[in-house]
Structures are given as C-alpha cells and as structure tokens.
C-alpha cells in the first residue's frame, strides 16, 4: 500500500493536523499514535460508536481515522459514526482505516462519506501522508480501493448516453488503473504527463461518483462481494 506518495509540501511551519483515532483495539490505537509523525497531533481516541461520536463532537478534529468495524451503536460500525457526525462533515473529514478489505465494508463506509480508505498494514509515514491529503480536501485511494472501483464501475470508459455519475471517464479510468497498479499520485502524474493536482482532482471526482452514484449494480456488487 505505498501509493500515498512520499514527499509532501505540508512540512515546515504549518500547524499540525488535529486527528481523532477511532478503533476498538487499544493496542492498535497506541501503536498508531506512536507511528504518526509530528505533522499530526492526536487530540482524542475512541473505542466505540457512542464514544466516537461524543469525542468528535467535542474535539472537532480535522481528520478522523476511523476503523470500519466498531462495537456499540446499532451495529453499523464506522458508517454509523459518520452518519452520527453528519453535522460536522463540512469541517471534519473521515479516513477509513481497516484490517478488513472486504469490498462491502469499504464501499459502505466510503458511501457514508469517508474521504478515503487505507489498510492498517501501511506504515506510519504513509498514514500521515494520507491524513494530510484528506485534510487538504483530497481523496485517498489505496490500490485495493481503486481495484474495487474498477470492478464496480467496469473497465470500459463512459458512453455519452450514460448518466455521468454511473461511469468513469477515460482519464479517471487511467488514474484508477495506475493507482491499482501501485503507483503513487506523483508517479501517476508523471506517467500521464499531468500535474499532481490534476490527479487529485480526478481521484476526488471518482470518490464523488462512488459516493453519489445510484448505480444499482454498485450496491448489488458490494453486497455480493464477500471476497478479498
């Protein structure tokens, strides 16, 4: 999972990003806290859905690192935390962090409003980069999430007749393919001769489609998929 790019422009005098970590395993939370570098500060932690909603409302972090599977609430896990914090969605961004890469989990939390998804096995530096990217308003796609998107939307480019939300454009497809192949945003930009900003725009557009598309195949597809 090393697509999230390495060098980032945010270092230096920029104030640290305020982050809340939501995960039901205390060991994982403390490990992650130790892994994150000083470009972010952890302002709160939570282990259940109720705690998470309370802590997020209280601390108003910029980014929430959110586990997909959480105890408590109505059993909805991370999805429920996002919908419970809907009022803050304008200022707080959610980055899904999961050990499960079952498609239905990932897609459901993205559709609830998360700005990206990374697996728990990636390094602290990579998670930090992902947090910064999400805080900056961009989307974070792991190779696997890009693979899910390609699987769900199909690998053929959009026809004009299709609803704009239901298909990916040829460029978006190219970007998704490169991310699925393990390219970082920087490498994608280099490969396609476009700027990193443009790559980020494409990825955000795909995220929007993933969240808003009413394409019934998408939901059906996510429900059917129990495999990796």
């Amino acid at each position: 999972m090393n697509n999230i790019g390495t060098g980032d422009a945010h270092a230096g005098g920029v104030p640290a990003i305020r982050v809340v970590i939501v995960d039901d395993h205390a060991i994982f939370r403390s490990g992650l806290k130790a892994d994150l570098d000083d470009r972010v500060t952890v302002v709160g932690e939570a282990g259940t859905v109720e705690q998470a909603i309370a802590v997020i409302a209280q601390t108003r972090p910029q980014v929430v690192l959110l586990d997909v599977h959480l105890p408590g609430g109505l059993g909805g896990g991370g999805r429920e935390v996002i919908s419970g914090s809907a009022a803050l969605l304008a200022s707080t961004r959610f980055l899904a962090l999961s050990v499960s890469d079952a498609a239905e989990d990932v897609v459901s939390v993205i559709r609830a409003g998360a700005r990206g998804y990374v697996t728990k096995s990636i390094s602290g530096a990579e998670i930090t980069d992902a947090v910064l990217r999400v805080a900056g308003g961009d989307a974070v796609f792991s190779p696997r999430l890009a693979g899910f998107v390609l699987d769900a939307f199909g690998t053929a480019p959009a026809d004009i007749a299709d609803d704009e939300l239901d298909r990916l454009s040829a460029r978006e497809l190219e970007v998704m393919r490169l991310i699925a192949r393990g390219y970082s945003y920087k490498e994608v930009a280099k490969e396609l001769f476009i700027s990193i900003k443009t790559v980020e725009t494409h990825v955000s557009a795909v995220l929007r489609k993933l969240q808003l598309s009413s394409r019934h195949e998408l939901t059906k597809w996510a429900a059917e998929r129990r495999l990796l």
Partner: peptide, 20 residues
C-alpha cells in the same frame, strides 16, 4: 527488496498483469 504490487485486470480484450 520491498513490497511488490501486483495488479490483474481481466477484460474482454484480454488479460493484463502488472508487477511493480
């Protein structure tokens, strides 16, 4: 000497595998 990314895409035209 580090993580390897493998991407398999099966489409109508054929199969592609990328190892990076």
């Amino acid at each position: 000497g580090c993580t390897v990314s493998v991407y398999l895409e099966v489409a109508d035209g054929g199969v592609e595998v990328f190892v990076k």
